[in-house]
Design a binder for these strands. Sequence first.
DNA 1: CGGTGCATTGATCAGAATCAATGATCGTGG
DNA 2: CCACGATCATTGATTCTGATCAATGCACCG
Lengths: 245, 245
Amino acid sequence: MAMDKVKFARNRLKCDNGNICAVCSIREVSICANLDKSELSQMASIARNQSVLPQQTIIGEGEVAELLFNITSGAVKIYKLLPDGRRQITGFLFKGDFLGIAHSEEYAYSAEAVSNVTLCRLPRRRFKALLDEIPRLEKQLLEVVSNELTQAQDQMLLLGRKTAREKVVSFLLSLSDHARKGGQKVSLISLPMNRADIADYLGLTTETVSRTFTNLKSNGAIRLLPGNMVELAESDKLKDMADGS
Amino acid sequence: MAMDKVKFARNRLKCDNGNICAVCSIREVSICANLDKSELSQMASIARNQSVLPQQTIIGEGEVAELLFNITSGAVKIYKLLPDGRRQITGFLFKGDFLGIAHSEEYAYSAEAVSNVTLCRLPRRRFKALLDEIPRLEKQLLEVVSNELTQAQDQMLLLGRKTAREKVVSFLLSLSDHARKGGQKVSLISLPMNRADIADYLGLTTETVSRTFTNLKSNGAIRLLPGNMVELAESDKLKDMADGS
DNA sequence: CGGTGCATTGATCAGAATCAATGATCGTGG
DNA sequence: CCACGATCATTGATTCTGATCAATGCACCG
């Protein structure tokens, strides 16, 4: 029965890490997509699972980058700080996202768990060595980083040129889009992060985020539901609001 | 004499593209760094030189990405537009920078020459094929893209959380830093782009950029010289101004 | 010499920040 | 189970930074 299976898997994990990648639920949406069995077992040999509680720091900007992570569940925020404490969240990461890529020896940003998070942890040196052995892995990584760059450029447009309302609507739509890719309902999304996080992601204050939500609510564009859920109106109308057209 | 050499090179270029990479002046600062002779000749076999006048469009957002470019001289701006014409310049590119990387089939941004520009043009399909043959090239590309991502995150911090003055000073310092890497004087930098470009890069208006320059000038932080040159004061003081500390 | 495009400066406005208070939610312990 | 406190979200009043509108100045070029 199911219980036994789980127990068996756990036991195997303790003494032998061999198949954690083979049974990984997020493999096909992660950097490990398209790897064959032997490549997966190479990955498994350097990978370890790890749990992180909300608010806990995963990596710190400027620290020596000894570990890389693949997010297997939960939400993570990555951010940069100014000396006086001003913060810019440069991204929210979810299951399947890769964390800690650094071309330099140090992390370029900090990362903190937003919700309960589980991670697949990889020593950087060994991962880099694997890149030489598994060309496909390097290709996947290049694709991941290119995607992140494109997203970063979209976010620059948002930060530099959009109004508060456009920023908030764009944010909600990007979460909705993310839910769509995960096969979930697109009109009902969850906001695991608090207002301060949203504000620091959009270059606003918590008060402005809150007022904008209220305003969108009274327009019938959204509904705020219990449990940090938001219901979106027809997305065509919202899509127009997101870029001012 | 020198004249004959140039003529000879030009003639070779017409009938045989063989050594354009071998003699490329920006090779070591570009994606072609660290390639061996045979790899360079593979690159050369698909590369063509191209000149672009100021203000000319090089690629357009949304177009099918058939070409990639390596900038061999001059300055290029890349940008994204909102439907109503608002513009965010996401980067200025200079010699050695790579242009047109797109994980999708379409360019994610537009690019336009700021000054006279010379390019090394590569058909995307053939370049992608080369990536499979030359692992080192893929490594270089990954490094380039990772670097751009890090820069993009810095720029997000700037756009979302810095004041007008901090933005302008950060911009000047980044140009100075770029000059330093190019082995030029760091206290005397050139601004090939106009005020509107700077504004659209920093998420400001031309008026605010202009006022901020005037203000920095009267503080003795900078001097505006003829020929779009700017002289910077001691960079320690400026570095503090760039992040509000 | 005039004209065109770009930069600067001035006056005013507006959107978002800041300062301040209140309200809602959740977890904890009595 | 309820009361309390802590944390987070919302709302209000006011301020301020940077945008907008408008005019002038400057340099380069035919």
